[in-house]
């Protein structure tokens, strides 16, 4: 059996890749995909820890994370659509009306 710490380290690496994408990319859609990577890295961590503790509660949490992720994708993509319609760009640097 693969030790649980392997799964945790893999989850950490994937989460960090997601963070790097959010920091470094300017394309709103790619930023969004990076957020999905982070959500799924945490999902893997939850499943691995649930297995280590022998309980199914971690899987229920993954279920709810998926629900939130789906809602977030729908609302976020709608916001990207609206922003693109108004500004004709998906570059995060050029959409700065709310920045102080």
């Amino acid at each position: 059996m693969t030790p649980v710490s392997y799964y945790l380290v893999l989850g950490a690496v994937l989460f960090a890749i997601g963070v790097a994408g959010v920091i470094m990319r300017r394309n709103l859609i790619v930023i969004f995909m990076s957020i999905e990577i982070m959500l799924n890295a945490v999902n893997l961590t939850l499943v691995a820890l649930g297995r280590a503790l022998g309980s199914a509660d971690g899987q229920v949490m993954v279920f709810f994370v998926m629900t939130v992720g789906a809602a977030e994708a729908a609302v976020g993509l709608a916001i990207i659509l609206a922003a693109f319609r108004n500004r004709h760009t998906v570059n995060a640097d050029e959409i700065g009306l709310l920045r102080w």
Binding site: M1, P3, S5, L8, V9, G11, A12, F15, A16, A52
Partner: peptide, 13 residues
């Protein structure tokens, strides 16, 4: 995160 996780003592039940 690596320092946290790599020494997690658990193995799958």
């Amino acid at each position: 995160l690596f320092a946290f996780f790599v020494r997690a003592p658990m193995s799958p039940m």
